[in-house]
Amino acid sequence: MLMHQGIGLDRFNEITRARAIHALFECCGNVTWAAKLADSRPYADSDALLAKADIELLALSQDDLDRALEVVVHEHVSGGNVTVLAQITRARLTTMLGPSEGYPDY
């Protein structure tokens, strides 16, 4: 389960860099990737965030990719590669953002 669920894109764009990196790390398991995405804020829409996420995943070294897969995959995945990591990451980013306006704070 992600700690940062349904925060919405607007809130994601406005939270501190440290909190954004933490939220993104939960999605991929790579600090460099998370920092690059956090530093590229604000995003106009979720598609822009997902596109940047894919671009930065492709830039990961094989060692970084292997470590990220170890963090986000809790069961053996055949053919663990950037495509598998991208699918997992996109699903987690979508969960992190939730609806466009995010869930209300209680």
Score class of each variant (00 low, 15 high):
M96S: 03
A35E: 03
V71S: 12
I15D: 01
A20K: 13
T83I: 10
K52G: 12
D47Q: 14
G98H: 05
A44I: 02
L85I: 15
L57P: 08
D66W: 15
A48R: 14
K52L: 06
L50R: 09
A86F: 04
I15Q: 01
R19C: 03
D39P: 01
R17V: 02
A86N: 10
T32P: 12
Q87P: 11
E56Q: 10
Y43I: 07
A34Y: 06
V31T: 10
E101T: 01
Q87L: 14
A38S: 14
E14A: 07
T89L: 05
L85A: 15
M96H: 05
N13S: 02
H76K: 04
L37A: 01
T94E: 10
L69N: 14
K36M: 04
S46D: 02
V82P: 06
R17Q: 03
D39V: 02
A35C: 05
E101A: 03
L49S: 12
A91R: 03
V73H: 15
L60V: 00
R92C: 06
S78E: 13
G29Y: 02
H74Y: 12
L58Y: 12
V84L: 04
K52R: 00
R17T: 04
Y43F: 00
H74W: 12
I21M: 14
H74T: 13
T94R: 03
D47S: 12
V77A: 01
R19H: 13
I55K: 09
V71I: 10
Q87C: 08
V84R: 09
N13C: 00
T94F: 02
C27P: 07
T94C: 04
R41M: 01
A44N: 11
E101C: 06
L97P: 01
L50G: 00
A34T: 06
Q62T: 00
L69S: 14
A34E: 11
A20W: 05
R67E: 11
P99I: 10
V31Q: 03
A35Q: 04
D47M: 11
E14T: 01
T32S: 01
D63P: 10
L65C: 01
E26A: 07
E56N: 15
G98Q: 13
A86I: 00
E75L: 06
A18D: 15
S40A: 09
R90W: 00
I15G: 08
